[in-house]
Design a protein around this nucleic acid. Structure first.
Lengths: 346, 346
DNA sequence: AGGGTCTCTGTAACCGCTTACGGTGAAACG
DNA sequence: CGTTTCACCGTAAGCGGTTACAGAGACCCT
């Protein structure tokens, strides 16, 4: 690989000039600039990233924190691939790469662990990262918040953080849920239950409040026994529906905070001999791939999955170049009507 | 962030000694070593990765090439998340990070594009990457092969490459397919068709040969009109079944080279008024999430998804530290019998 | 003609770490 | 007691860039 020095020698200039050609082109004479550029192209010159980062204290990498929740092993992100597609392509447009940080460092290494909050800061500094994108796995909220305070650019997904150069992106969870439940109400249901995610989870809480808002809008009395907590997993959806069906006055419709739980609910309903949507209408959230394939196809609230990544990339790039805090981004969440809610029969 | 020099000053030693404490501990006196270690821990010292990489020409990063096929936009990996989980956790154990390379560089940049084969080499050098993990998207086979020849450690997924420090990992596609088709034969089917992936795609070709081998084993005459090419997408599975059903002597069972196509096949069968598995038995490949959720649940050949990542990580680490070529890894592919093949009724 | 500006470029320090090399003092040796 | 040997450590030269600073001409002005 050609180095700057080789270019310099071949062009009869100093390395400083070569560097200037790429970083402050306007300060170098047009003739020499072209000469340098031509030789650089011939030798296929690429500035060494480590050297550049060392001297500028800035790399072209954004860190990605994506841990699987240690309290819930097997946790999976509902649409990681789409998110990454959006993130990567938007970052690529700025010439940035995505560094997926190792979760637990080599024991030989000097405290390379990411476990503690300062781990994030250390990683960011060690690699001169432009900033961090934080994917919520449900158990790092405190660490995220503390990193956000550190002043490094950072954008969290689906969890609110605050800091001098921090922001977050999330869906309009409350709005989406509200629309979903309103849809159910519009279909004539009034006994509508909901299965929430883990209490404390921000998207889940927002969806719950959207559910409540929709009932309030319609003047339907909320019932505590119609709100049952799940954990976003399929099994919890099944369990929730079993509990709901055991009530004296079981619901005729269920809004689940995730498609996985909606699928679990579907299985439970089927096992109980109920037909969906005739005996029990069902709406989910996320619009994961499964939603459209299950039978009946799931009515659900779709999130802008690649949009998450794109928004995160934009926000972090803005904070890197701008220097200030960015406004949180809330992406639209749209109801996708399929078969599980019963609208198509009506 | 504390630097080596600060540690050195506080300990009254030179920076060289500090460095040695971490890189060749046995060459430094125990007392001073402990002193340095203690101070380092107090100051929470972490060697700067850029500086280290610059001087050793070795970073602790592995590059990940994961492009979406430009000829088939919207291409998605069937189980990227599981693969990444395995890859990341295995690399983390060695203290390595995963760098997702930007696909198309900033235009301002000096030829930062990854498009051409040398793009890979350049990226690897610029960042002092330990090597590359290549995810096949169906259209980079030549670029992969050429990178493999470059001598940098590299492991490709689902596509064979060869080079001084290159290897690949793949599933036992042929064996898995053979088992699947043998299962169908065992259920009494003899008119078994197959839907392949894109011709030329290695896993697809291997699955096709497994299909043929199973027929041969059973003494069943292969029929050219029972082999129809798809592209791994759902729609192609639908189209394929429509063609198959139009034959004079339609098959009674279909082996699809991907679950997506199997789902498409399922939809086509249903649309044609056929019941699966009674009228048409179906087996897929991959065991993606959808497989277990679709109705009837898909019998399919399961790949060891996280195992892919783990094997890739192991192979590349071995090549980095070892220096030689590693044997290709072929992961077991196991038939998972569910409902779409009819075995459960029998 | 002397001085001030402006443009362009080279010199050299620096980023933080690694490592070849050489030096020092103590222990071991003849 | 002189000489080797060895363990330990410091000096300094990189790695490949960036950038503050200063110097050299060219040009314009009074």
């Amino acid at each position: 690989m050609a180095t700057g020095r080789e270019i310099a020698q071949l062009c009869g200039v100093s390395v400083a000039t070569v560097s200037r050609v790429f970083n402050q082109p306007e300060t170098v004479n047009e003739d020499t600039r072209e000469r340098v550029l031509r030789v650089a192209k011939e030798l296929d010159y690429r500035p060494n990233e480590s050297a550049r980062a060392l001297s500028t204290k800035q790399s072209t990498m954004i860190g990605l924190v994506w841990d699987t929740d240690h309290r819930r092993p097997g946790w999976r992100h509902p649409y990681l691939q789409d998110l990454l597609i959006g993130l990567k392509s938007a970052l690529s447009a700025h010439g940035y790469h995505l560094l997926m940080l190792a979760t637990s460092g080599d024991a030989r290494e000097v405290g390379a662990s990411l476990a503690d909050p300062v781990g994030y800061v250390n990683m960011t500094r060690r690699h001169h990262l432009g900033g961090l994108v934080l994917i919520d796995s449900g158990s790092d909220a405190e660490a995220f918040e503390s990193f956000a305070q550190s002043g490094f650019p950072c954008v969290a997904l689906d969890v609110a953080v605050d800091g001098p150069r921090a922001t977050y992106v999330t869906s309009d969870n409350s709005g989406g849920a509200r629309e979903a439940v309103a849809h159910l109400l519009g279909l004539g249901h009034s006994r509508i239950a909901t299965i929430t995610g883990p209490p404390g989870n921000q998207p889940s809480d927002a969806r719950l409040s959207g559910y409540r808002a929709a009932l309030r809008d319609a003047g339907v009395e909320p019932r505590a026994d119609y709100v049952v907590a799940g954990d976003f997993y399929r099994a919890s959806g099944t369990a929730a529906v079993q509990r709901l069906l055991a009530l004296d006055e079981p619901p005729t419709a269920v809004f689940a905070s995730s498609d996985e739980m909606a699928v679990g609910a579907l299985l439970a309903a089927r096992a109980a001999g109920l037909r969906v949507p005739r005996d029990l209408a069902l709406v989910g959230f996320d619009d994961i791939e499964i939603a459209s394939v299950v039978d009946p196809a799931l009515t659900t609230v779709a999130q802008d999955k690649p949009g998450f990544g794109v928004a995160a990339a934009k926000a972090i790039m803005a904070m890197i170049t701008g220097g200030g805090r960015e406004e949180p981004v809330v992406l639209p969440a749209k109801l996708v009507v399929r078969d599980s809610c019963g609208a198509r029969q009506g």
